[in-house]
Amino acid sequence: MAEPTIALEIFRYHPEQGEAPSFRRYEIPYREDWVVLDGINYIKDQIDGTLAYRWSCRMGVCGSCGMMINGTPRLSCAAFLREYFPNPVRVEPLAHFPVERDLVIVMDDFMHKLREVKPWLIRGQETPLSEGEYRQTPAEVDEYKQYSMCINCMLCYAACPVYGLEPRFLGPAAIALAQRYNLDSRDEGRRERQEVLNTEEGIWDCTLVGECTTACPVHVDPAGSIQRAKVTATVDWYKDVLLPWGKR
């Protein structure tokens, strides 16, 4: 019996060849326990060494290997060929990002935005290490834990039509990470971050499509984080308007 095979149709683009992108079809062996990334590695090693893509951990935690798989943003190390077999699988670089080459996207934009939201603990007063840890109960950890799970895989940006239409939008992961610190009981930087969040390109660009949350492989729920940030910003606004004297 012939070994079963499966076709991968892969987006190819090379800046030096100056041509428009095209799809190339590769026929590879089909294995029950292979993920799409295994298939791509097979192509790279055995068929075509020119294919460019990113990967490392192959266990869903480094965030390198996001791709559009049949139109849906997925981690290629967590998407099994068996979910698609016997149909061909179409593999493209993550939507909405410029493409450097083949499946490699340019993610400078996110790296800038990440820094803009100040994703570090901000304290008025640093306590010396000799005084031990800042106390934080398990319930206080739970407040922000979910938002701290972001692996920066960019699937949510690829899922977000708002980001596709308005690239200046801060976007799901950056906002979720801002909220991760805002909700941390050790942090005192919420007002500072709010200056970036509470803007047109910040949380208010979001029209609540909710697809970022669906796409997120680690259940960060960025859509929820944005909604919560909106509620907080609104409460802040009422407080400032109704109790102007109570302003810090």
Binding site: Y134, R135, D184, D187
Partner: peptide, 13 residues
């Protein structure tokens, strides 16, 4: 102190 979400005891340590 830099924010690592270490798991905690009920008393926060």
């Amino acid at each position: 102190h830099w924010g690592c979400p270490w798991s905690r005891e009920p008393d926060g340590s």
